[in-house]
Design a protein around this nucleic acid. Structure first.
Length: 250
DNA sequence: AAATAGCTCAACCGCGTACAA
DNA sequence: GTTGTACGCGGTTGAGCTATT
């Protein structure tokens, strides 16, 4: 413990200087990525391994894309976030050259505001009680200092069904019954995610009396069942949500 | 021109997980 | 099964920049 404290205080902190970047770059080119704990010893950098790893991953790595997000990237982040929550590394994985840190910052400084404004504006419940609760809940979540709790989507039935609905991206024709089952699960998922009312959780939205008062933002609902996004979330082996749903695939 | 409020984003921290001994 | 180590992730902080008064 004492050792760890000592080590910490010895590590240089704060912004990286160009000469430090150069040293780190040379180090990685010589020794390769990994073994970050030994970087300071071998390279002479007075930085902790974590700091070096982060600097490499976010700024020095080849093919890092700098500069503002395109409209397409912004749109994808928005959609993926709706689906996956704050899983920045997963979202960043679908944006070549972008890092999880960048996506997270972009969300917090740009898209999160839009999201909150949008929610306030876009629901049409006449008494507006749900709207306020939704926003409060969201802000409360954002302010939480706790480590990431499981996202609602982790446990939602849409990711845990056992009806064998085919989502493996093999371009199989979906019959009407399967499509209907899919849609129902999707509807239930969004009902759950927005957390409109705890009593509604698990209740098929179509059957709920409040259904007529609810809209999914200003886009048609189908945009959130965008096949690309759904495939990305459910159909890829490197996606932990995908792994969940893949477990019941044939 | 100076003060200050607001915003952005690089960097840090703590926790969880994987893996080896 | 336990412990130690390395790594990755998401939440948070704060320095520096910009806009406003």
């Amino acid at each position: 413990m004492e050792n760890r404290k000592e080590k910490k205080s010895q590590s240089k902190r704060g912004l990286w200087k160009p000469e430090e970047d150069l040293i780190l770059k040379n180090y990685v080119e010589t020794y390769g990525e990994g073994n970050w704990a030994t970087v300071s010893k071998r390279s002479g950098l007075m930085r902790g391994g974590k700091s070096c790893r982060l600097r490499w991953k976010n700024y020095l790595r080849p093919n890092i894309k700098r500069g503002g997000m395109s409209k397409e990237e912004e749109d994808l982040i928005f959609r993926m976030h709706k689906l996956l929550g704050n899983r920045w590394s997963l979202i960043a994985g679908r944006l070549p050259g972008r890092t999880d840190n960048e996506v997270k910052n972009y969300w917090n400084t740009h898209l999160n505001k839009k999201s909150l404004l949008g929610r306030k504006r876009k629901t049409i419940d006449s008494n507006n009680q749900h709207n306020d609760n939704m926003e409060d809940n969201h802000i409360e979540n954002q302010d939480s200092k706790k480590p990431r709790q499981a996202h609602d989507s982790d446990h939602h039935p849409i990711f845990n069904t056992t009806d064998g609905f085919d989502l493996d991206g093999n371009k199989q024709e979906k019959d009407d019954e399967s499509a209907a089952a899919w849609m129902e699960r999707a509807v239930r998922f969004f009902n759950y995610e927005y957390d409109l009312d705890y009593e509604m959780v698990g209740t098929p939205l179509m059957m709920h009396p409040d259904y007529s008062n609810f809209v999914f933002d200003e886009e048609p609902f189908t945009s959130y069942t965008d096949p690309f996004v759904l495939f990305e979330a459910f159909g890829t082996a490197d996606c932990d949500v995908g792994l969940g749903i893949q477990s019941f695939l044939p």
